[in-house]
Simulated scan of single mutants.
Amino acid sequence: MTKKRTLLKENEKGSANSQTVDNHRKNLMQKFEVNKTVNLLQKAKEFGILQ
Rank of each mutant, 00 (worst) to 15 (best):
R25Q: 08
Q19F: 03
N27C: 03
N17A: 02
K13V: 01
L40N: 00
G14L: 02
Q30T: 07
L8D: 09
V21G: 02
N17F: 12
K43M: 03
Q42D: 02
M29H: 13
R5F: 08
R5G: 10
V38M: 06
V21S: 06
H24R: 14
K13S: 03
T6R: 11
T20K: 15
N27A: 14
A44L: 12
K26H: 07
T6D: 12
A16E: 09
D22M: 09
S15I: 13
N39R: 09
N27G: 10
S15T: 14
T20R: 15
V38F: 04
L40I: 03
K36Q: 01
K36H: 13
T6Y: 10
D22L: 12
V38Y: 05
L41Y: 09
Q42G: 00
V34Y: 08
K43F: 00
M29F: 09
Q30D: 09
K4G: 05
K45E: 04
K31V: 01
D22Q: 12
H24K: 11
V34D: 01
K13N: 10
K43E: 05
Q42A: 13
K31I: 10
N23W: 05
F32A: 12
D22E: 11
K36P: 04
F32K: 14
K36V: 00
L28D: 01
L7V: 04
S15E: 08
S18E: 10
A16Q: 08
V38A: 13
L41H: 09
T6E: 14
N35D: 11
K31G: 01
N27V: 07
N39D: 15
F32L: 04
L41V: 13
F32C: 02
K45M: 04
F32Y: 15
T20D: 07
E10I: 02
K4T: 15
E12F: 02
K4C: 08
G14N: 02
A16N: 06
S18C: 06
E33I: 08
L28R: 14
L8H: 12
N35W: 02
Q30K: 15
L40R: 03
V21F: 04
M29D: 05
K43Q: 08
K45D: 04
N39W: 11
Q30P: 04
H24V: 08
M29A: 06
Q30M: 11
N23F: 06
A44V: 00
V38H: 06
E33K: 15
D22H: 11
S15D: 09
N17T: 09
N23V: 07
N27W: 11
F32W: 15
K45S: 01
E33V: 12
H24S: 11
R5A: 03
R25T: 14
E10M: 15
T37E: 05
K13F: 03
K36I: 03
L41S: 06
S18H: 07
A16P: 05
T6M: 14
V38I: 10
K9N: 03
S18Q: 11
K4A: 15
K31D: 10
A44H: 08
L41T: 01
V38L: 07
V34Q: 05
K13R: 11
Q30C: 03
L41C: 02
S15G: 05
K31R: 15
